[in-house]
Computed example of a mutant assay.
Amino acid sequence: MYIKRILLILVLLGLLGGGLFAAMVYRTFFTSNTAFANETAYVYIPSDAGYPEVRAQLEPLLEDLEAFDAVATRKRYVENVRPGRYPILRDMNNNDIVNALRSRNTPVTLAFNNQERIATLAGRVAQQIEADSAALVTAMTDPEFLKSRGLSQDQAMALYLPNSYEFYWNTSATGFRDRMAAEYDRFWNEERKAAARSMGMTPEEVIALAAIVHKETAKADERPRVAGVYLNRLRLGMPLQADPTVIYAIKKETGRYDTVIKRVLYRDLEIASPYNTYRNKGLPPGPIFMPDMSAIRAVLNPEKHNYLYFVVDTQNFGYHVFAESLAQHNRNKEQYIRWINAQNIRR
């Protein structure tokens, strides 16, 4: 009888210990362990990170970091860290957090527009994915890559069409570049290529002209008309005489791309640069800016007319007045010069 009592006590103690252990395991694995108020927090894990880097990011997000360590070790996550951007939902337990860090790499929406140079584009992109700006510049200007695409260094910017795209945060510089090349090829379908060919232009030349059109007018509804002017000039062998190209030539010559130039002076028209479309006929070597899609569409679908000239409309700011003859243009220009002088705009 005494031995049976001892055995019963031992069994009860075992059951109690097992229950306590099971409760502890359950609490460690399946009890909420987040310490933030928002619905979602994101953990950004670099490509070369190990568990210590992940742990440092999780520390301010979790109530009990040691409990998470135990689960991460048990599930062997500490040995299999994966780079990316991972969502942690409020009130998640440790088991769910480990599962999320294993399998829920979530894309970011990467957006860019209105860039003037590869360097500024790289800086904008580097704010949104893991790749840094230096690596992006190197990838986007790689001579072998550009050669494989039939592009010059001056045309490198043409490959990047402004829009919003989904990327994994841990995308590399070459991964970004190659994806954008694929997006470029997708945009330039046979219909758009045929439209460019009908004007005697390549896709890169369309984008170079679209950049000028974009800079000339901020009004999307006016861009087809402006595009028509420049296409008329190209057909007639006239120089484009586009002020935005002269402004870009000045910036490129001085290296001061943040300079604001509101007025092009006669002496500026003499700058010796392939981007100076007053001195050089035809298109500049590459785009002077990243044109909006509306400007690209305007070049591909220009307004048909006989205009060869245009100048700022001082009665309807943002728009321009157009002329077929130089005499009419000079009369329009006189009105604009009187207005700009009255504004005391010297540069």
Rank of each mutant, 00 (worst) to 15 (best):
V321G: 06
I288C: 11
Q57F: 11
R331W: 07
M92Q: 03
V260R: 09
R27V: 07
L300C: 06
G318V: 11
D154I: 07
P239D: 00
F310L: 01
R102H: 12
L20A: 15
V206S: 03
K215L: 13
T73E: 14
D292L: 14
F167A: 04
N276P: 14
K219A: 12
L10S: 05
A208V: 07
A122Q: 00
K75H: 06
A35P: 11
I88T: 07
P60I: 08
N80I: 00
R104C: 06
R149H: 10
N306S: 12
R76C: 04
A194L: 13
L62A: 02
I340W: 04
M180W: 03
R117N: 13
D178Q: 08
V98K: 14
Y278C: 05
R331G: 05
L269W: 12
A196L: 08
A181K: 15
P87M: 15
N330K: 12
E191L: 13
F21T: 15
V206R: 00
R223W: 04
D178A: 10
L15Q: 06
R27G: 07
K75M: 15
Q57N: 12
N95I: 01
T245I: 08
V137C: 02
L62W: 02
A111N: 05
V229T: 05
R149D: 12
P239H: 01
R85M: 07
D69L: 13
D64T: 14
N306K: 11
L231R: 13
R55I: 11
Y257R: 08
N189F: 01
T202F: 08
L101Y: 04
R279V: 03
K4V: 11
R117C: 12
Y51T: 00
G19L: 14
M238C: 12
T106V: 10
Y26K: 09
G237L: 09
A100Y: 08
I129K: 00
H214V: 06
Q315W: 03
P284S: 10
